[in-house]
Amino acid sequence: MNKVVAGADVAIQDIPSGATIMLGGFGLCGIPENCIAAMVKKGINNLTCISNNAGVDDFGIGLLLQNKQVKKMISSYVGENAEFERQLLSGELEVELIPQGTLATRCMASGYGMPAVYLLAGVGTEVAEGKEVREFNGKKYLLEHAFDSDFAIVKAWKGDTLGNLIFKDTARNFNPMMAMAGKITIAEVEELVQPGELDPNYIHVPGIYVHRIFQGSNYEKRIEQRTVRKR
């Protein structure tokens, strides 16, 4: 079994226009830079992107937005992207804003084979509109459905040729449960190793969830808010 593909261009080559794609990352931390660049180059459009954020104007998913390749964004926070806000207010872009924990858990439900879950967030707010409400132990919950995503594209620190993945620090964020949720999951990693080189005790996502893997290159890893203290 070998899941290794040559690079981002090959990994995304069958993603059609109109596809629903999950993209891992929190802000610009742990985003699949290589695959985003390849999608920009390929020019597929009318995409529905499920991702916690929408990048910034000139990096991350912002590059797809700038290129008008995104039809709909499903996110929890999009505040760092002026082009996003412009497209949204002008009606060019559809957006569904959902609570961050709900976003994460709807991905998780998908990877765990659960069609829906009852969640607390958003009860009594406009997020609850049109959703089934059910009471458990005197508290109200909303029925939230698992995502149905054609592709998931994630970024990991290390991976092996069987697709087993390890993430680093807070670059883990949404990547594991998105990796588990895609019908086709593509993982780009900083370091691709042979089976046996990763300690089985410390693997975050088992390779059974991953269909394609490649070692990425030229990671920029842009920092959104550089905060430091004096020595």
Binding site: S76, Y77, V78, E85, L97, P99, Q100, A121, V123, V127
Partner: peptide
């Protein structure tokens, strides 16, 4: 239009 991030989950 920035979104709620994790605020709705936290306050709930």
């Amino acid at each position: 239009v920035k979104g709620m991030g994790g605020a709705m989950d936290l306050v709930a």
